[in-house]
């Protein structure tokens, strides 16, 4: 191998205007496109969405004419379980694995601020995960149409939009985990624990607490809103004009008290679950040594 000795003079061209968070987000998407884990997750989600749709549309009588059928209900459950896990773990893996592989230093030695790096990473993951949601729901929509019982595209779009909000909230929580926990494997473990608490323990804990302590319904509703997965469920069921039975006593109380505005309240909660962890992440990320 030979290296030419060069005289490097650089460039005086008019520089283009790039916004570092957008550049970093594009980089995250580029990496996701080549990430085996991402395609495993996305492919798995699409397969499950297809399987659920096929199963749910086997018996036409079980799919209500109001649109909120078995297929949509099952897709909501799938988002709660799978998308939440994907977003949390991918978000948690990013910064901590970048720290371990020292690629974070590569980014931070450029003239970009830490806030820009963090926001770009967040935005990239939300975009990649939202694409994965679109893929899964697209597959579900196609399969339901092929089965001769198409899901209302408007409802599917609303579900997609709400799922993207849940993605944003859970990626933000994942990013917070990755700023707090230095090692990638530990961050992954914490993310899975958070997922388990949000998806399973949150629901069961709430039910248990209700039975044990006779929680008033309004307290039960407030406690449910503390969990972004529950907020998503509330927002989707109301937005997709589903049966209020699916919401339990807290949901019924919420609808009785706030009317259809409860969906907006749940969306606001999802927004807060995005903004607050991100703000905390920025604070932690700026203060800690990153090399």
């Amino acid at each position: 191998m030979t290296i030419r000795i060069v005289s490097f003079t650089g460039s005086n061209r008019t520089p283009p205007r790039n916004y570092p968070p957008v550049v970093i987000a594009s980089k995250v998407i580029q990496e996701a496109r080549r990430d085996w884990w991402f395609w495993t997750y996305a492919g798995g989600f699409a397969l499950l969405a297809a399987a659920i749709t096929v199963t749910a549309t086997q018996h036409r009588t079980l799919t209500s004419s109001g649109g909120f059928g078995r297929a949509l209900a099952s897709l909501i459950a799938l988002v709660q379980l799978v998308i939440t896990l994907m977003s949390l773990t991918l978000g948690a893996r990013q910064l901590s694995s970048e720290r371990e592989s020292k690629t974070l230093v590569f980014l931070l030695t450029h003239p970009v601020s830490r806030t820009q790096v963090l926001l770009g990473t967040f935005a990239g993951h939300v975009a990649a995960m939202s694409a994965s949601v679109l893929l899964g729901f697209g597959v579900a929509g196609v399969f339901s149409a092929l089965r001769g019982n198409p899901i209302d595209p408007g409802l599917l779009l609303r579900l997609t939009a709400l799922s993207c909000l849940l993605v944003a909230a859970t990626v933000a929580i994942g990013v917070l985990v990755s700023t707090l926990v230095q090692r990638g494997s530990a961050a992954l473990g914490v993310a899975i624990s958070v997922w388990f608490c949000m998806v399973f323990l949150g629901d069961l804990g709430l039910m248990g607490a209700t039975v044990a302590t006779q929680l008033p319904t309004e307290t039960l509703f407030a406690a449910a809103l503390l969990n972004p997965v529950e907020a998503f469920r509330l927002a989707t069921v109301i937005s997709l004009e589903g049966s209020l039975d699916a919401l339990g006593p807290a949901g019924t109380y919420a609808v009785d008290t706030f009317g259809r505005g409860v969906a907006a309240l749940a969306i606001l909660v999802l927004g807060l679950w995005t903004a607050v962890p991100l703000a905390l992440s920025v604070q932690v990320f700026q203060r800690r040594d990153q090399a």
């Binding site: 030979t2 290296i3 030419r4 060069v6 490097f8 650089g10 460039s11 061209r13 008019t14 520089p15 283009p16 205007r17 790039n18 570092p20 550049v23 970093i24 594009s26 980014l107 450029h110 003239p111 970009v112």
Partner: peptide, 19 residues
Amino acid sequence: CRLRNLSLDLVSETADLLN
């Protein structure tokens, strides 16, 4: 280049110069 707001022409120039 993008992170430094530089022209992307520098990609091929730099790659050429450094083999």
